[in-house]
Design a protein around this nucleic acid. Structure first.
Lengths: 222, 222
DNA sequence: CAAACGAATGGCAGACTGTAAATGAGTGCG
DNA sequence: CGCACTCATTTACAGTCTGCCATTCGTTTG
């Protein structure tokens, strides 16, 4: 698992520089379509059955491609999963994060921080749950998830520092608490048939305020 | 994966009742040793490298056994993992739970509830993290973990009902919150190089009190 | 048109699983 | 003691899956 492919890539390098130029043009469009189709099949399969029958063959068949084409597009099975992770991160849209970290009001920053992750985690709970599970089991494969967690951890620390309550040790505790409360797993545990997305967010936001000992009366909207 | 073995078991059934009795005696001791050795190897391998190189062959070699013996003892690879899960649950010792649920003081019950899971989650963080990851990825394999989560969820509900605050909808929210806060993942996210077990428990206990809107001044020991 | 390239097909070695049969070795019963 | 019973080991085999390669086919580019 997780070795990169070479044959095609190597051939390209070898042939490089001695042939006439060739622009992929239309070809790359169908490649993108195939890529998307396979990724979609991977997402559905992962959501439906986890990794139990998650084989390259099955995904390719589902996407109407051959197994070899899947290998050409993604290299290895691990490559498919990594592409899926990246795809999720892109679509999940944590693009608002830089903007949020610029927020002038500390409490509004906190509220937006909680909100953006609520939106992300709720966007595809089952898929994210599976991906986080894989990240925990296969550290190599889960490196990008770990990295995103680290970024969230640092962001939580900065939010707490902007709130400016307590000494350094207390800030460490509050940052860890905020980090834990904005984790996917906490949101996922909060979510159930009685508590759907907005109710979960409401409860989460209340709990965060209480945990950080903020005045809950000061409404920041949302 | 996860099919039960038959050859040996079937033969036993077939031979049942027509042979003279045979007490395993000393043999069972070495079987137990082999069992323990393989489980130990499985634990170490799972902690060290996740499922990356988690093969029956490697585990058997590590335990000084043959692959076939591993199959005789546990049936399938899934059987090894399930045995590992059960072993963890046994050693983790949630045996105090029934006693805790009998506690007369509601707040003491809550404190003990938080404490017992802190102890459990801290007992072997890496292993539990991996096991919960597997449970999320392979629903069939993770059935026992799911079942334990369900029990914790019901227990959380009962604790909240004993506290007796709020109407039914609020109890539902508080129970979900307590469930989420006593999850392994929440504890694991709280835990870091600066916040070790006791500090994590202290923070967790404070946050639970605030989340459930209890009077933190009323000390219950611990 | 010819060169270039992706897609599909079939094939291959290697790894792993689950199973089976045969053999060896330890243990209890008569 | 010797036989019956059982477990462990060895060897073997079929089945699945991965990663890779060579080849062919069809389409696109220049």
């Amino acid at each position: 698992m997780l070795r990169l492919f070479r044959s095609r890539e190597l051939n390209k390098k070898i042939n490089d520089g001695c042939k006439r130029p060739y622009d992929l043009g239309k070809r790359s469009e169908t490649m993108d379509r195939n890529r998307a189709a396979l990724l979609n099949a991977a997402r559905e399969e992962l959501e439906a059955n986890g990794l139990a029958n998650f084989t390259v063959e099955a995904l390719a068949r589902k996407a109407g491609l051959s197994r070899q084409t899947a290998h050409n597009l993604f290299g290895t099975k691990g490559g498919i999963l990594e592409a899926l992770f990246d795809d999720l991160a892109k679509k999940g849209g944590l693009t608002r994060m830089p903007e949020i970290m610029q927020e002038s009001s500390a409490k509004r920053m906190l509220a937006e921080f909680v909100r953006v992750f609520t939106d992300f985690w709720a966007s595809d709970r089952v898929l994210i749950r599976r991906i986080h599970g894989i990240a925990v089991i296969d550290p190599e494969l889960g490196a990008s998830v770990q990295a995103r967690n680290e970024r969230r951890k640092r962001a939580a620390r900065r939010v707490v520092e902007r709130l400016g309550t307590g000494n350094d040790a207390e800030k460490t505790r509050l940052a860890a608490t905020l980090y834990a409360m904005t984790s996917f797993e906490f949101f996922d545990a909060l979510f159930n048939e009685d508590i759907q997305k907005e109710a979960a967010w409401k409860q989460l936001w209340q709990v965060v305020q209480r945990a950080l000992a903020l005045d809950p009366g000061d409404d920041v909207g949302g």
